[in-house]
Design a binder for these strands. Structure first.
Lengths: 203, 203
DNA sequence: CGACAAGTTGAACTCTGTCAATCCGGGTGG
DNA sequence: CCACCCGGATTGACAGAGTTCAACTTGTCG
C-alpha cells in the first residue's frame, strides 16, 4: 500500500527528529505540525508550520537523515509515504518527480522571506496571509481558523519577541483588520492585510 | 579557447543584466563588481561583491537567464568562460562538476548571513573580515585594501542606513580596530574584529 | 572655479526588545 | 466541587539600537 494513515498523534509528540533515518515523507492529514531546529547554543529555531494537506520531511532526501524536528501542535494525523514507493512511482511519472524536486528545493531552505528587515506589522501580516491562502487552497476557510501554535512559536518563527506579536495582533484588531481571541482568529479585511505585506516575499 | 579575457570595463558598466541570455560564467581578473537585483518597487538590493579571482553568473545556469545585474565598481577586467566548453569539461571531470554545483547552490541564494538580527557592529565586522579573508585567499593583503564600493552599497548590502555604516566605521576607528580614510582601509586588529563577529555566519 | 556626489556628524524620533506585573483558562488535587 | 497553580497571553514602562532628517564637509571632475 502506498499510503499509510497513522494513528492520531497528540500535542508535543514528535513525528521525527534530527538524525532519524529517512524512510518516508509525510503528508499532514489533520492538525498542525511545526518543524524546528536547535542551534549550537541550544536555542530552538522554528522553521515552519505544516497545515493539513502539506508535506513534511522532503529535506531529508539527500543526506538520508532528517534535518529538522517535527512535532504535533495539536491532535493530528498524517499519511506516511514510504520513499521507496514514491521514488519508484516518480521514475515512471516525470511530472511527479518534477514536483518533488520543486518542493524539495523550496522546502529545504525554509522561507527566506524573513531574511529582510521587515517590520513586525509586515511579518505578522505576511504570516497570517500565508496561513489564510494555504488553508484556502486546501478547502478550508481563509478567513476563520485556529492558531494552533503559541505566540511564542509565532514570534520565534517571525524573529520577534512574543510581546511584539501580542501587541501587533492587538493593534490589527484595533484597526479592524481581524478579530482574535486566544487561538481563534477571524480575518476581517484581507484586502488591507494584503497591502500591509505587499513587499514581503511570500512566506 | 576556453578562457577569454575581456577588454577593461569602467565604473558603472554592466557585465550582464537580469534576463540576459546565459552563455558564459565570468571570473573577475581585476577590479571589483557588485551584483544586485531590483525589487518590484524599483528599489535596488545589493546581493554581493565580487573580488578578483571570484566567479559570477553561476545563478543563471538553471533558468538559462541571468537572475541578477552585475556592474563594475571600478576599472575591471574579467575572464569569460563559455558555458558550453565548461559543461563539456565538467562531464569529463566529476570533481569540476561537483565544485560547480556546490558554488551554484551557495552562490544563487546569496549570503543568508544577513538574515538574522545582528547589530550594525556585527554586520560590518563580518563584512570587513569576509573581504579580508577573501583577498588573502587570492594573494592580496588581508589588512590593507580598497573599499571600491560606496558606503551606500555597503549599507544596502548589510541592510543598514549609510549613516550607520559611517558611524560604525568611525567607532571602529576610535576603538583602534582599523584606520579608514575614504575608500582606503587598514585593518589594525583582526583578532578583535573577528571576535566582534564570531556569532555571525560567514558572509 | 563651481557643481555635485559621497561622506560625516548631530538631534530627534521610532521601533522593538527586555523587564515586570497582571490576567486568564485549564487541569490537578484536596 | 472548588481552590489553587501554572503556562500562555496581555499590558505597561523603559531603554537601546538604528533610522530619518537636516546641515555641513570634502573630494572629484567637468
Amino acid at each position: 500500500m502506498l499510503v499509510q494513515t497513522s494513528a492520531p498523534m497528540h500535542v508535543g509528540q514528535h513525528l521525527f527528529r534530527v538524525g532519524d533515518a529517512f524512510q518516508a515523507i509525510y503528508a499532514v492529514r489533520s492538525g498542525y505540525f511545526k518543524t524546528y531546529a536547535t542551534d549550537d547554543t541550544g536555542r530552538e529555531q522554528v522553521l515552519g508550520f505544516h497545515l493539513p494537506g502539506e508535506l513534511m520531511g522532503l529535506g531529508a532526501i539527500y543526506p538520508n537523515q532528517h534535518q529538522v524536528n517535527a512535532v504535533a501542535l495539536d491532535t493530528a494525523t498524517v499519511c506516511r509515504l514510504p520513499y521507496n514507493d514514491l521514488a519508484g512511482l516518480a521514475t515512471q511519472m516525470p511530472s511527479l518527480q518534477r514536483q518533488l524536486l520543486r518542493l524539495m528545493s523550496k522546502g529545504i531552505t525554509g522561507s527566506q522571506a524573513l531574511s529582510g528587515d521587515f517590520t513586525a506589522e509586515e511579518r505578522l501580516a505576511a504570516f497570517l496571509m500565508s496561513l489564510s491562502q494555504r488553508l484556502q487552497q486546501r478547502g478550508y476557510s481563509p478567513t476563520e481558523f485556529n492558531l494552533a501554535m503559541t505566540r511564542r512559536d509565532i514570534a520565534n518563527y517571525l524573529r520577534l519577541a512574543t510581546e511584539t506579536v501580542s501587541r501587533t495582533l492587538a493593534q490589527f484588531q484595533d484597526d479592524g483588520l481581524l478579530a482574535v481571541e486566544r487561538r481563534n482568529l477571524r480575518l476581517l479585511d484581507l484586502e488591507r492585510l494584503g497591502q500591509l505585506c505587499h513587499n514581503v516575499p511570500q512566506i
